[in-house]
């Protein structure tokens, strides 16, 4: 083996960039799906909607007890079959690994985001709900304009922390033969034998991105403080 030579990274950078782009895309998609579903789940539980509330609770418990990698496996094989079952075709519908990954990560993260917001909802005083009621706001308007903006503000640091974990977890997509940042690096390393350079480089990339996000977490925490009075 030759000397350690990081200039190799420049040559393979387009491949790494492809992988990194996919990691970002997956994080953004899972964040969007997870936040929308998670908010709905949290509100369903908070309002104790009959029938739906226990279903949501069970779903969240299951998702949080199974490792993501297993969920990924299941969904990768199950989503096409389920889609086929509900459509008229009766055959499994292949949706491709990329969309399967978006959906799986989104549904999985929804359980975690939902738990964060459920706790956030509990931190809002009853007086806020009563004041909104007294002003004749509807239930939807109460959550939309009064409650959720406050919940998002107090939970923003925790939501972002969870999203950092999500970003790191995207590396699990190798099990369904998708190539993210880590996957790209490891494939290149296998080909050119530059294991140290490649793995050190991805480690630095993860470190830079996640520590930058952590800085934002710290900032959000500070900003949330005066709100919690």
């Amino acid at each position: 083996m030759d000397h350690i030579d990081f200039s190799i990274v420049l040559h393979v950078w387009p491949h790494l960039w492809q992988g990194l782009k996919f990691s970002f895309m997956l994080t953004v998609a899972a964040f969007a799906i997870g936040m929308i579903l998670g908010t709905i789940f949290a509100i369903i539980q908070h309002l104790q909607v009959p029938v739906l509330s226990p279903i949501v609770k069970t779903y969240i418990t299951i998702m949080r007890s199974i490792p993501l990698i297993l969920v990924l496996f299941w969904f990768f094989f199950l989503v096409p079959i389920v889609l086929g079952y509900f459509s008229s075709s009766g055959r499994p519908i292949p949706i491709g690994p990329v969309y399967a990954a978006y959906i799986t990560f989104g549904l999985f993260e929804a359980a975690y985001y939902s738990e964060i917001m459920r706790v956030g909802l509990r931190s809002i005083s009853r007086g806020q709900f009563e004041a909104a009621q007294a002003l004749a706001l509807s239930t939807f308007q109460t959550y939309r304009f009064v409650i959720m903006p406050q919940v998002l503000r107090v939970t923003a640091p925790i939501i972002l922390s969870q999203t950092i974990i999500l970003f790191q977890d995207t590396s699990l997509v190798y099990v369904v033969s998708l190539t993210d940042l880590l996957g790209a690096a490891s494939k290149i390393a296998q080909l050119n034998g530059r294991l140290i350079e490649m793995y050190v480089t991805v480690a630095i990339i993860y470190l830079l991105i996640c520590s930058a996000l952590s800085q934002i977490v710290t900032f959000l925490k500070k900003r949330a403080e005066p709100m919690t009075r």
């Binding site: 806020q128 009563e130 002003l135 706001l137 406050q150 503000r153 009075r229």
Partner: peptide
């Protein structure tokens, strides 16, 4: 009017006052 005011802390005074006229 409540004992503990129950103003909406994430909205300005003006926005607090405008919310219900706007939405309701």
């Amino acid at each position: 009017v409540f004992q503990s005011f129950n103003l909406f802390p994430h909205l300005t005074v003006l926005e607090n006052c405008m919310l219900a006229p706007l939405r309701v």
